[in-house]
Amino acid sequence: MKRILIFDDDTDILEILTYLLTEKGWEVHTRTNCNNIISILEECRPDVILMDNWIPDTGGIIATRTLKAHEEFKEIPVVYFSANNDIEKLATEAGADTWLAKPFDLDELELMLSRF
């Protein structure tokens, strides 16, 4: 079973994604902040990460850069997702592997996650 870790401060999004991805066979872990991201990764050991841009307190860009600079976790794919108009630029700035604009279609998310 593949593990996904979702960082988003919107608990409604976390609940919906947890339900939908669990139904698809994923083991889902969620966090409403990305403080101490390395400790969280050590605990969850995800196969892929969904990272929101606007997340307290560290923020998605710094959190993504932190994990991509870490020798043990730098290979974990990060899907940067946000409702921000310049999501592609933000994802590149963060060092994410790919991006997904909110609101997104569930089929689009599934297709993206199937690549990892």
Rank of each mutant, 00 (worst) to 15 (best):
E42Q: 15
S39W: 00
L20G: 00
T66I: 13
I37Y: 02
I37G: 07
E27D: 13
G60E: 05
E71H: 12
N85H: 08
P56W: 09
C44N: 12
V78S: 01
L50A: 07
E71V: 12
I87K: 01
K89N: 10
T30H: 10
L21H: 09
T22V: 02
H70T: 06
T66F: 03
F73K: 08
D52F: 03
K68S: 06
K68V: 06
N53D: 09
S39D: 15
K24R: 14
K24G: 00
K89I: 11
I40L: 12
H70I: 01
I37W: 03
I87Y: 13
G59D: 11
A69H: 10
K74S: 09
G59N: 10
I61W: 08
D52E: 08
C44W: 01
L20M: 14
N85I: 06
Y19Q: 10
M51T: 08
Y19E: 14
L50H: 08
V28S: 08
L21W: 06
G59C: 11
G25C: 05
A83S: 14
I76A: 02
L50N: 08
T32Q: 13
V48D: 02
N33E: 14
L21R: 02
E71T: 13
V48R: 05
E71Y: 06
F73I: 07
N84F: 06
N35Y: 07
T18Y: 06
